[in-house]
């Protein structure tokens, strides 16, 4: 399992691996929003949590179509399926590698981008917490979507259409934690819901991903 994680991280950092693309996309989206909304700092501060969450969501989506497709094209998935490593573990590791290369940088960059969006001071901490709690779910759900579309040519668009609706609960509760945090309100309920969604997806979805992957490998 460590071998697969190390290999995926190494591949992401090598030429064409796509590390940093999601982060750069996140940066550009959040820089463009103030340009579109105009110089109204109060309004920006109000919408900042939602914009940051939406940006993180789209940035996660960006790198999903290569998550399993590359391994499928070059035959690695066939070989992994016959290897001693259970496929459930393999997809979990791939989701973890996706989170480390995409989700974690977003969590760390969010406070810096919060400044650009005039996020109120109490909001920074909860912004980071909400993303840290929610982005693992984005990677795990995304891996499931990638497993569903793995054999399809030009599966990227279909993948987005399948995955975005599944991201809705995470987005709602994640943005709610960040918004309440920014407004200085109690965040316990949405934070627990968010953590619950993440825990449930991590526990259950790898089985679904492995099952659809087995079907797609036939």
């Amino acid at each position: 399992m460590n071998a697969l994680l190390a290999r995926d991280l190494k591949l992401a950092l090598r030429a064409g691996g796509g590390f940093g693309l999601g982060l750069a996309f996140f940066l550009i989206v959040t820089v463009l929003v103030p340009l579109g909304v105009g110089p109204q700092s109060a309004l920006l501060g109000t919408i900042a949590p939602g914009i940051l969450w939406l940006g993180a969501l789209l940035a996660c989506l960006l790198s999903l179509d290569r998550l399993l497709a590359l391994d499928w094209e070059d035959g690695t998935l066939d070989l992994l399926a016959t290897a001693p490593l259970p496929l459930e573990a393999a997809v979990s590791i791939k989701a973890l590698a996706h989170w480390i290369t995409t989700g974690l940088p977003l969590v760390l960059a969010a406070p810096v981008l919060g400044i650009l969006l005039n996020l109120p001071a109490p909001g920074y901490f909860w912004m980071v917490v909400s993303l840290a709690l929610g982005t693992p779910a984005l990677s795990v759900i995304g891996t499931f979507g990638a497993a569903l579309t793995v054999g399809l040519k030009r599966g990227g668009l279909l993948l987005s259409l399948l995955v975005l609706p599944l991201y809705v609960p995470t987005l709602i509760f994640g943005a709610e934690v960040a918004r309440r945090g920014a407004a200085g309100m109690d965040i316990a309920t949405p934070a627990l819901m968010l953590a619950g969604i993440t825990a449930a997806t991590i526990a259950l979805l790898p089985f679904a991903s492995a099952a659809v992957l087995r079907v797609n490998l036939r």
Binding site: R7, L11, A15, D71, D74, G75, L79, T82
Partner: peptide, 24 residues
Amino acid sequence: YAGHSDGIKPTLTVTENLNFWARV
């Protein structure tokens, strides 16, 4: 199993490719 495609990652070296499968 060895099929039509070799499951080789072009950006990894020969040693890295083999080490990965050896560890798996």
